[in-house]
């Protein structure tokens, strides 16, 4: 089967479809929570797509939104419980933002647009790819913010101290929330310029 790679680049859910920005960017001040968040979204997105696709013919259309919400929130709670049990440190940082995965527009969007009308396996792949595409942006933003804002990556210092001695300073602005938006805006710019060149 061919992998639907579109979401990783030209159909990226955050950059092109403007979905799911909500709960995401607030956790990108550091790389580690951003990656954990990205993985959580991927898991929830993939499995909710799979489950909804499996039961798609039994769902009464009138209550399909409620059924979707129920499935998604169950998965989110399961993920949240696992995070609290196995990566407590990170789960403390993510706090309510894990819960907000429920209202992440990517997930509901993919359920409506794809899982309700496709076979389980392609739905699963679609969910996973969209989750990963979302995660990619989160990771890039998290990476830049942590590197430039705190001079570390994954909590390990990476900027050599000789550079600090030479007068280099961490850019405190990067840690502040608004910078996440400005970085995403710039990513969109880069992507769009590439696209128009390709044409």
């Amino acid at each position: 089967m061919k992998l639907p790679l579109g979401p990783l680049s030209k159909d990226n859910p955050i950059l092109v479809q403007v979905l799911g920005v909500c709960s995401a960017l607030a956790v990108t001040a550091q790389l580690k929570p951003a990656v954990v968040m990205a993985l959580s979204v991927t898991v929830v997105c993939a499995f909710s797509n799979l489950i909804i696709s499996l039961i798609r013919n039994t769902i009464p259309p009138r209550i399909r939104i409620i059924v979707q919400l129920l499935v998604v929130s169950t998965l989110v709670i399961v993920v949240d419980q696992f995070l609290q049990a196995y990566v407590y440190e990170v789960s403390k940082m993510l706090s309510v933002f894990v819960g907000l995965i429920i209202t992440n527009c990517i997930i509901m969007g993919r359920l409506e647009a794809f899982a309700l009308s496709h076979e389980p396996l392609p739905s699963f792949m679609d969910g996973m790819m969209n989750g990963l595409g979302y995660g990619l942006v989160l990771a890039i933003v998290g990476c830049l913010r942590e590197l430039l804002g705190s001079g570390t990556l994954w909590n390990h210092p990476v900027i050599p101290s000789s550079l600090y001695a030479a007068g280099y300073l961490n850019n405190g602005l990067m840690i502040l929330p608004p910078m996440a938006l400005i970085l995403v805006g710039s990513l969109i710019w880069i992507l769009n310029s590439k696209k128009s060149k390709a044409k």
Partner: peptide, 24 residues
């Protein structure tokens, strides 16, 4: 939604959601 346009009785809907909630 094309495939899901079958009609479902209220009884079915009620039963469906109950089963789902209990399972969850």
């Amino acid at each position: 939604m094309a495939a899901g346009m079958k009609s479902f009785s209220n009884k079915y809907i009620f039963f469906y959601i109950t089963v789902l909630v209990v399972a969850v």
